[in-house]
C-alpha cells in the first residue's frame, strides 16, 4: 500500500484521516440507497417495479399507488425548463466570453452567481405571489390567443389560464438552472485555445463565424455536460415549484394544467402520510428519483470527462 509505506507517523495519520473523509461519502450514498430500498420494500412488494412505474393511479384513500404521473411531471417540467434555459444561458456565456467589453464581464458574472445563490424557497414564494398572477393574467392568455387554431400546438394551451401549472413551474425552474448552464458553458468556451480563434480572425472571419465555427464546435461536449448537470438540478428541485404546480396526479397534454413531480409529491404528502403502504410508496418514489438523478449525473460526467480528454491532448 502506497499510503502506508511512509514512515512518518503524522503523514500516516494525515493519510488515514483524508481517506476516512473520502470513504465516508461513499458510505453515506450506500447508506441512503439502503434506507430507501428498505423503507420502500413494502411498496415494491405490493406493486412491483413495472406496475409501479407504469400506473397512473395515485389514490391514498384506496391505497393504490403508481409513479407514472409523477415521473411524467418531473420529465416534462425539466424538459420545458431546459428548452427555455439553454438558449438564454448559452447567449449569456457567448456574451461574456466573446462579445462583452472587459468592464462588464465582472458585474454580469457576479449577477449570475447571485442568481444561483438565491434559496429555492424564495423562488417558490415569488412564483406564487408574483409570477403566477402575471402568467395567468398576461402571458398565458396571450399564448392561448396566438396559438388558437394552430393544430397540435393549440392542445398545449387548452384550459383556463390559472398560473398554477406546468408552464409557470417550468419558467421558475429555467430561471434557477440558467446560472449553472451559463457558468459551465462560459468555462467551456474559455477552453477554446485563443491561437485557433486568433487564426480565424486573421483570415478574416467575423465574430459570428468564429463563435459558430470555432468556439461552439470546440466546446460542444462541455456545454452538453453542463446542460445535463442542470438537468440533474431541475429534476430534484422541490420548494421552488411546490407552490405553483398544484400537485395534481393526472397526465395532461395542456401546459396550463396542474401536474405533480416526484419532489413536489414528496414535499406535499410526506408529513401527513398515515398508512404504512402510503409512506412506503413515497419512499419508493424517492428511490425512483435517486436512480433517475444517478443516471443523469453519470451521463453528464461521461461527457465532461470526454471533453476534458479531448482538450488535454
Amino acid at each position: 500500500m502506497a499510503i502506508l509505506s511512509k514512515k512518518n507517523p503524522i503523514d500516516l495519520l494525515f493519510s488515514v484521516i483524508t481517506a476516512i473523509a473520502s470513504f465516508s461519502v461513499i458510505i453515506f450514498i450506500i447508506g441512503i440507497l439502503f434506507v430507501l430500498i428498505k423503507e420502500s420494500s413494502l411498496s415494491i412488494g405490493k406493486f412491483g417495479i413495472i406496475k409501479f412505474l407504469t400506473s397512473t393511479d395515485w389514490d391514498p384513500v384506496k391505497e393504490s399507488f403508481g409513479a407514472l404521473t409523477n415521473i411524467y411531471g418531473t420529465l416534462l417540467t425539466t424538459f420545458l425548463s431546459l428548452i427555455i434555459a439553454i438558449p438564454v444561458a448559452i447567449g449569456i456565456a457567448i456574451f461574456i466570453t466573446e462579445i462583452s467589453p472587459n468592464f462588464l464581464k465582472g458585474p454580469i458574472g457576479i449577477a449570475i452567481e447571485l442568481l444561483a445563490a438565491i434559496p429555492s424557497i424564495i423562488y417558490g414564494m415569488w412564483g406564487l405571489f408574483t409570477l403566477s398572477p402575471v402568467m395567468s393574467n398576461h402571458v398565458e392568455p396571450f399564448l392561448k390567443k396566438i396559438t388558437a387554431g394552430i393544430p397540435f400546438v393549440e392542445i398545449l394551451f387548452r384550459g383556463t389560464p390559472m398560473g398554477i401549472d406546468i408552464l409557470t413551474a417550468s419558467v421558475i425552474l429555467s430561471i434557477m438552472i440558467i446560472p449553472f448552464t451559463a457558468s459551465i458553458s462560459r468555462d467551456s468556451f474559455n477552453l477554446t485555445p485563443s491561437v485557433v480563434k486568433e487564426s480565424a480572425y486573421a483570415i478574416g472571419a467575423t465574430k459570428w463565424e468564429v463563435i459558430k465555427n470555432i468556439v461552439i464546435p470546440y466546446s460542444k461536449l462541455g456545454v452538453f455536460g453542463g446542460i445535463v448537470l442542470s438537468l440533474g438540478r431541475a429534476l430534484g428541485e422541490t420548494m421552488a415549484i411546490a407552490f405553483v404546480l398544484g400537485n395534481n396526479h393526472r397526465i395532461t397534454t395542456s401546459l396550463l394544467d396542474a401536474a405533480a413531480t416526484i419532489t413536489v409529491t414528496l414535499a406535499n404528502e410526506f408529513a401527513e402520510a398515515d398508512k404504512d403502504i402510503y409512506l412506503s410508496s413515497l419512499f419508493y418514489l424517492a428511490l425512483v428519483l435517486f436512480v433517475m438523478s444517478f443516471i443523469t449525473l453519470a451521463i453528464a460526467k461521461f461527457f465532461l470527462l470526454k471533453a476534458e480528454r479531448k482538450y488535454s491532448r
Binding site: 395515485w58 389514490d59 391514498p60 384513500v61 384506496k62 406564487l128 390559472m162 398554477i164 411546490a242 407552490f243 398544484g246 400537485n247 395534481n248 396526479h249 396542474a258 406535499n268 404528502e269 401527513e272 402520510a273 398515515d274
Partner: peptide
C-alpha cells in the same frame, strides 16, 4: 372519492396549505 388527508379530487386545482 372517499375520505382522507389526501384524496384523489375528481376536478379542480390544488393549492399548497391554507394560504395556497
Amino acid at each position: 372519492v372517499g375520505a382522507g388527508k389526501a384524496v384523489k379530487f375528481p376536478v379542480g386545482i390544488g393549492g399548497k396549505g391554507n394560504e395556497g
